[in-house]
Amino acid sequence: MKSHYINTVWSKIWSRQYGDTEWLCLKVSFAIWYYLQATAMLFQYASAPYPSGILSFSGTYYLMLVPVKIAIAIILFALMALYVLEIRIALVTLVIFVLSIFIFAIGESNGVMGRDGLMSLTWLGQSLAYMLYNAGSAPDLRRNRFQFPLQAIAAVYTLAAISKLVASPLHWVSDSPYLTLQIIKSFDYAYYTSGDPSLHAAGIARAQFILQHPQLTKLLLAGSLLLELCALVLLTGRRPALLYALLLLSMHLGITYFMNIFFPHISIPTLLFAVNPLYIVIVPFLGRRKTAATRAHSQ
């Protein structure tokens, strides 16, 4: 029975198809995480001194007033609830997409380019999946509501690779000694922000490691560039997406360790849509319940 239980759990995790429970787990985890990020961005800045994007249109000044922001936060909460409950989900996700563009334009309007387009695009992807399903054009809804946002995620990584190839073709790999300056800079940002001197020392130590291991560094840089360039693999199926996302996340972990920078608005959507950790945590309990039900039936 134990091996049957393990096989059941593994077959669900390693399945080629997306399921409804998996979708529910994604909705819950994504809704919670997105709401926390969106409200943090909404209330982080008091003004928009350099209006950008949607905020550059006249009349949008009122959107920065505190009562309006509170109203937006309440509306967003309600939309998250409708999203999880899957009520008018095509329209709800479209509205969230529009709101998201405004919310994350606040950071850009303060001169902070957060590169968080993915926070909005994932909603557009889900909305399109439902709209095309309702229109009868794309009947495989179970796949598309995962796969459409994954397309946006893959596009982000590919764009990052294209930017590197355009800005500094193969120099990006051979310029690895100058990477040490970026490492020190990142750790110094944290040091000058928090005042913790151990951060400055950590930056110097990691920079020295890079200088002492140039070949290893070039190999890692080339590998990460290749990973970003081949992000199209995320679109080829559930299993390849799961494995490739783990590679991308390990790349992010490496970046966090060496450079003390983390791109939550890119790596967390990748984690949620391709790996779906809440589902992986819950699946063993689903398997146990099903196995117990099977045992009771056979008795």
Binding site: G53, G117, L159, K164, V166, A167, W172, D175
Partner: peptide, 25 residues
């Protein structure tokens, strides 16, 4: 994203696309 300027939600994600010979904090 390649055609339009850097405006939400479009971006070319140029973070660390090159390593200059100096850094500023």
């Amino acid at each position: 994203s390649l055609l339009l300027p850097e405006v939400q939600p479009f971006s070319r994600y140029p973070m660390y696309s090159q390593f200059p010979d100096h850094a500023q904090t």
